[in-house]
């Protein structure tokens, strides 16, 4: 069985780093792993998506539609852009940031009213939190990506040691501690809510 994870947001939010940590944790846990991401033009403030797949043997680096079991979103509208790739019972962790695209500022489009209630119509298994606020409380807003990852990890079934090793090998030494704390805070946010049985 292959586990597929989608991590989405806007260029500059740390999506590629977060997906690298998931992939490394799966490597440490002994799985075959494939990831995919789009570079280049997409980095200039555009939508960014990273895909991670792991299992006994993984072929395609691209996730087939309706098979991803976990979604992480660092921006609200972006969380809905990839719903087609999620399994019906997928676990979605969405941070409440709203980054207004220029198409909205310029008046060509509108930013839809999206809150936890609206989102829960699209995600049967939703955790909605403010990852930036929680990461800021811990001391660094930039750790919001890893905080989100902590919340997602409650459904990724990888050993805790694998996560820790992956974080240590993926972030600069001086940011390891804050990211480990952010990861734990994200985990706790889900487990305390009792969302996970």
């Amino acid at each position: 069985m292959t586990t597929s994870v989608v991590f989405v947001g806007v260029g500059g939010q740390g999506i590629l780093l977060a997906s690298e940590i998931i992939a490394q944790a799966a490597v440490v846990a002994g799985f075959d792993v494939k990831t995919n991401e789009v570079h280049g033009m997409a980095q200039r403030g555009g939508s960014v998506v990273a895909q991670v797949r792991y299992g006994k043997k993984v072929y395609s680096p691209l996730i087939p539609r309706r098979t991803a079991s976990v979604l992480g979103a660092l921006e609200v509208v972006e969380s809905l852009r990839w719903t087609d790739y999620l399994a019906a019972d997928a676990f979605a962790v969405v941070s409440s940031q709203r980054i207004v695209p220029v198409t909205v500022s310029g008046g060509a489009a509108t930013y839809p009213e999206l809150n936890e209630t609206v989102l829960s119509r699209y995600f049967s298994n939703l955790v909605y939190l403010d990852a930036v606020e929680k990461a800021t409380e811990l001391g660094n807003a930039k750790a919001s990506n890893v905080l989100l990852l902590g919340a997602m990890s409650t459904r990724l079934h990888l050993p805790r040691e694998a996560w820790e090793e992956a974080i240590r090998s993926s972030v600069k030494p001086k940011f390891v501690e804050i990211n480990l704390r952010a990861f734990e805070a994200g985990r706790a946010a889900v487990l305390e809510n009792g969302t996970v049985g």
Binding site: G45, R65, R81, T103, A109, P112, Y122
Partner: peptide, 27 residues
């Protein structure tokens, strides 16, 4: 055929709202 098909019982998601495009922009 594809190994990981969506489960037969999966309910259709409600129609998404119109999502604003997010093209790359000058920083």
């Amino acid at each position: 055929r594809v190994t990981e098909k969506p489960s037969e019982s999966s309910p259709e998601r409600p129609l998404l709202p119109q999502l604003p495009a997010r093209p790359p922009v000058l920083c």
